[in-house]
Nucleic acid binder design. Structure first.
Lengths: 193, 193
DNA sequence: GTCTATATAGAGATAGAC
DNA sequence: GTCTATCTCTATATAGAC
């Protein structure tokens, strides 16, 4: 499993760089420096940059949705409580490592026009899955009367997801994690019954 | 004024590229191709890439705030109507040229970690100014009872701005201008009294 | 699986002629 | 103000030894 370990360390370094500077500002040389192996060795695990990005999105999607499902599938939690915990997943990412890290899929979203179709498709899956889970949480909240909003849950899910991704990016320019938190609280409060 | 004309054409091309692919994926060669003059001539007008980005943000900020002020300063418009028109400025940008263009300052926000301090400071000015204008619009709406929301107008302004910037970026991955519109309408509706 | 070495292309930038 | 020519550095990627 030494192979798989190196692979993960490369993905760790790549994810960190994507979250901080984006995919277009990340190079095999940076990964080489971060992981401590040569560029050619990175290419052995991920022949092209797109292979790396596809693997990165796939792994992040899997890990993140597992956390979301742990929230969404809890039967004794109100919809409002689920929504608050979902928001906290984004907040935790922003505060990782004391530097302000954005969501990797938010960063890649800004760069989508420069991604290969494979990577763009994987990215869209992440967005789709999140909107779907969010719609379920919102609908559950409306059913248990902990949330109140007009219109289709799918529309509000798109709105909430766009806000969270945007807030992570804006926070790094202006306000930081503190502003993210108070703004996210205000957003959730608008939906609470 | 032939000089100033070329300068503007370079900035036009640069803005188009930033909106579509971002600053890190934009090169002097791309600008050369788009404008029809050589790379060295671009460097004559903008010695370094940061000079170009600073000029780009400065011009966009000036032009955009002029449009915002035309909305905010209209005395016979309700706060809710002003907010709806502000949102439509972002919607119009997204639909420009039949391709989906993001806000240049939203794109640069994602890339802020790779910007020189001068450019990052100019970017922050754009964010600050927009939040300030939005807070005034929201407060006016609360005063004329066309809008209703809890807490400080500044917090809701940050929330609305983050949503709009995020929605433009998310829309290009998933849903397009149509989803942006229905989602933005839902957001405004949450604030309407 | 990792290395050295190399290939090829593109980046940002400058010198100096017209 | 624009050009040709060139410089230097970095990027992605591959060949082949260990």
């Amino acid at each position: 499993m030494a192979d798989s370990d190196t692979r993960d360390r490369i993905l760790d370094a790549a994810q960190d760089l994507v979250q901080r500077v984006g995919a277009n500002a990340m190079s095999y040389q940076h990964l080489s420096d971060a992981v401590g192996i040569r560029k050619a060795s990175i290419h052995h695990h991920f022949p092209g940059k797109s292979d790396l990005l596809v693997a990165l999105i796939t792994r992040y999607r899997h890990d993140f949705l597992r956390l979301v499902d742990q929230i969404a599938d809890r039967p004794n939690l109100s919809g409002a409580a689920k929504l608050a915990r979902y928001v906290r997943l984004f907040e935790a990412t922003l505060q990782e490592n004391a530097c302000e890290k954005a969501c990797p899929c938010g960063m890649l979203g800004a760069e989508v026009a420069t991604l290969e179709p494979r990577a763009a498709a994987k990215l869209k899956e992440f967005y789709d899955d999140n909107r779907k889970r969010l719609a379920e949480i919102l609908e559950a909240g409306r059913a248990d009367r902990s949330l109140r909003f007009a219109g289709a849950a799918e529309v509000m899910a798109w709105t909430a997801f766009a806000f969270l991704e945007g807030a992570m990016l804006v926070a790094r320019v202006d306000g930081g994690a503190k502003r993210f938190r108070e703004s996210a609280d205000a957003f959730v409060q608008m939906l609470e019954a």
